[in-house]
Design a protein around this nucleic acid. Structure first.
Lengths: 199, 199, 199, 199
DNA sequence: TATGAATGAGGCTTCATTCAT
DNA sequence: TATGAATGAAGCCTCATTCAT
């Protein structure tokens, strides 16, 4: 990697960091490309050398941030080194993510307003930011053949968690997040049970 | 109601109808007030006699449309005149709404991108468009004391249904809606069961 | 004067009072005819039954208010019943007006931003709001033949007073009004002296 | 100064010149930014690269033009190379400015409707357009200690001249400017005399 | 690569004025 | 007389994008 490449990477990161800062502070549509460029210390034209448009940088940002989040969660899980049953692993990960998003609500807003299942799936499969850890593989390895439709199951859980937690964290409605968690985790257990192939 | 009021009502409806048409076709942010006015056949200034701004007309539109949807569903349910158990009533309503939104995908897009739990709750309680039918009351009457936290339960179901169906109907992902329904309804049944107070 | 005429007069006064309130609070150009009508409790169209446009009401207002101001000043002067020499009468009137405008700065702003010599002259000659007292006549009577060009003299004094007092009252620049007064009155005396025909 | 800077300066001047033309022809409030841009041959957005808004360009214009006027006047005075007493220097400058504004009445209108003492003072002290010549310094140097309150004196003279000449030049009221001048200059002499510290 | 001046379409909103009732 | 809904011109300003340097 030459000097130039390093410089390029720095510039790109500066743009991404600035965009994250502004997106979470003021909202995506309230943030202009001018602002991002200016705060990042590059010329407006330079932005277009790295990203196609605002949508482009937004998607890359979200994929990157959520990918990091799950990586961390799985890492924590493995550090525990307990041999949790699958359902409890899933809940551990969920719990970790919820706590992180409760701490960092602007990230929560950015992600939940912009993260659809499509983006999420490619995030999970590490299409954009490959790393050693991969939630998809992880789940398949853990569940093997005991789950009939693992993707559908995951889909339901992810959507349930993400949409309900948004309200619970941001508005404490219908319950504050800590009071809501037990109901949520019970439901996750029920969903997993429904998908388990009887043996 | 005088002649003038009738005319005003007509103009307002014309604006609402046009806005719905354009919002569902091109998206809310891609629709300008100029366009709405023009297509509705009124002057741009006239728009501001009826609505404060784009957000205002959007919210009124969503509240109106979703309120209508649930009214219809409950009406159909009562027309059946079968004495379904509570869970099955809920699934009947869900099924009706899903079918309607599958037929009218642009309405689905408008609603699911803009309907949060807050707006939904006030829609359900008929705050904006009061009518004879009220889903909230309906549920309370049906469940009486057999559900521990009816609001939390409803919250989970509504959010699960709305967020997963969006993907399933629009992208057929992870399954087309008809194949997804059985899993969804099973999960609804599990959730209700979890909330039932044991006797 | 019939009932209707009384009602008309009331409505007109209400419009004038409201306009004065809004003009002095927010400035003439920041005040719309809508606002005036609304606050006055009449319909927008009604405004046009009484005034041609905003300029019209503004001019009538200023003429009325400044005419009142001078009437009061002359009345106070006559109440004193001292036989002041002409110059001191002029200074008495000036002093009275300055004090009133210091108390009521919004009136000062309205008048000084909008009162030119032309409007002032017609105000003085009671063209718009005739009354028993007339500054013009009063001055002529007092000065008789001792002043060579009474109108030029008055013109200079009025313009000097009005333009300098604005700054002095509003910005205390270059001096606060009370400290500025002695210089001003000295200058008035000098001007009068310059115009006196030697005998 | 690079090529770009030259081009920018040209564009800025083009905008200023056009604005001056339009402001003096149609008045400030009757001139829109669209018009200025269009006549200057630049896009509307370009205007905003150079000026914040209409007020901004107006103030810069007035400061620039009046600063030029006084510079010229002082230069002419010094070219004469006569050692005039202070009062006569002041009258010379006044006379020069009056003549220029009589020739260029649209400039007179622009300046007198928009130039308050505040703007004038900063113009005089060359805050905005510094040059070798500074009226303030000039006056101090000339008067030294013979004037008790030079700023108050200047204030009175400037306000008297500017407000009365406007009427005299534009409306020939109460006298045409040439006939009015003697009275004005006499009054200036009286004012200066009043401020002279007796010795 | 990097710049940043220039563009100009397009959005939002206000408001004087009219006119049918 | 009095109303106030309707008009639509007109203003202001932003911003994604291009392109000559």
């Amino acid at each position: 990697m030459g000097k130039l490449d390093v410089k390029k990477q720095l510039k790109m990161n500066s743009l991404l960091d600035t965009a994250f800062e502004l997106f979470t502070t003021n909202g995506v549509s309230q943030t202009s490309i001018s602002e991002i460029s200016e705060h990042a210390g590059v010329a407006k034209g330079t932005f277009y050398l790295y990203f196609k448009d605002k949508l482009d940088i937004r998607d890359k940002l979200i994929a990157y941030k959520s990918s990091k989040l799950f990586e961390e969660a799985i890492q924590k899980l493995e550090e525990k080194n307990e041999d949790l049953p699958f359902t409890e692993s899933l809940i551990f990960i969920t719990d970790y993510v919820i706590d992180k998003l409760t701490e960092n609500q602007s990230l929560l807003i950015l992600i939940s307003k912009n993260l659809g299942w499509g983006v999420f799936k490619s995030t999970l499969s590490n299409e954009l930011y490959p790393s050693d850890i991969n939630l998809y593989e992880y789940i398949h390895r853990k569940t093997q053949d005991r789950i009939s439709q693992p993707e559908v199951m995951l889909f339901m859980i992810v959507e349930l968690v993400s949409s309900t937690c948004y309200n619970s964290i941001i508005h404490s409605e219908p319950l504050p997040i800590e009071q809501y968690k037990p109901y949520l985790y019970d439901t996750i257990r029920s969903i997993v049970r429904d998908f388990e192939t009887g043996e």
